[in-house]
């Protein structure tokens, strides 16, 4: 149990780091999300031409804007962490430090993630407060809110293991950012972050159900909007993916370490 102070301290340092690079943090994590939202708000207002009575795939303009507003909260809460440090640690050979420390590499980065996530919860709550006051969304019942936030925090771990896995590929790959961008481009499209999945062809949606993507944006947004999914199925699929990815990460790490210790990189 004496590892708890190590975790706490790492979490604390991670929060300090986020705050120290305040401008960076603002421009890198919050800015994109806000701009993205700004574009979508304008885009959809223009598509509906301000008419609140038209329905597109069952969405009125009000509902469509609410969808994207919740998308903003979900994105801030779930997917800010980039794990960029992780690949840098590997590429610059800083990994040796962890081999000497009595605190593992994955522990360090998971603790960093948790620290980061704490700041994100704070930001997401502030954002939620702001959009609730602006009237863009209907404020849901408290229990629904709790369910939505818990579900989204659960997703943030799925994001984390995916980013962690990509970060580990730095053992072999000079630029892991390319893979990260690919993941981002594909997932923001397939998760329903750009368009609600209701606008997608039905067959595609059926297939997507078995991938992790829709659970990253579409589902949590729907929960906040009061449409609760089959939790058992959703959590089941996600847990399956999470377990699979975590296992792969473990294998990749073992292989990478072998390479690292054998060749000294």
């Amino acid at each position: 149990m004496n590892s708890i102070p190590k975790w706490l301290e790492t979490i604390r340092i991670s929060i300090s780091k986020v705050m120290a690079y305040r401008l960076n943090f603002l421009l890198q994590i919050i800015g994109p999300t806000l701009v993205f939202f700004f574009i979508k708000y304008n885009l959809w207002s223009s598509i509906y031409q301000g008419d609140r009575t038209i329905l597109i795939s069952g969405y009125t303009l009000t509902a469509m804007l609410a969808y994207h507003t919740w998308g903003l909260v979900v994105e801030l809460l779930a997917s800010g962490f980039t794990a960029m440090n992780l690949s840098e640690d590997i590429r610059l050979g800083r990994i040796s430090t962890y081999l000497i420390y009595p605190f593992n590499f994955w522990e360090f980065h998971t603790a960093s993630f948790i620290g980061f996530q704490i700041t994100q919860v704070f930001i997401a709550l502030v954002t939620f407060g702001a959009v609730a006051l602006s009237g863009l969304i209907e404020v849901p019942m408290f229990t629904l809110l709790v369910k939505g936030f818990s579900y989204t925090l659960f997703i943030s771990f799925l994001w984390f293991v995916m980013n962690y896995g990509i970060g580990l590929l730095a053992f072999w790959l000079e630029d892991t950012w390319i893979l990260k961008v690919i993941l981002m481009v594909i997932s923001s499209f397939l998760s329903g972050a750009i368009l609600p999945l209701d606008l997608f062809p039905a067959g595609l949606v059926e297939v997507l159900k078995w991938t992790p993507f829709p659970y990253l944006s579409y589902y949590p947004i729907k929960i906040f909007m009061g449409v609760e999914p089959n939790y058992l199925f959703a959590i089941g699929v996600m847990t399956g993916w999470m377990a699979l990815i975590t296992y792969c990460n473990h294998l990749v790490w073992k292989k990478g370490m072998k390479l690292y210790t054998a060749a000294g990189m």
Partner: peptide, 21 residues
């Protein structure tokens, strides 16, 4: 690094026609 992300935000804005805004 942060400036680079800001720059990319402007790219995104420009990727829709002006009448959208």
């Amino acid at each position: 690094l942060g400036i680079n992300f800001l720059r990319m935000q402007f790219q995104k804005l420009a990727r829709w026609p002006n009448f959208v805004y």
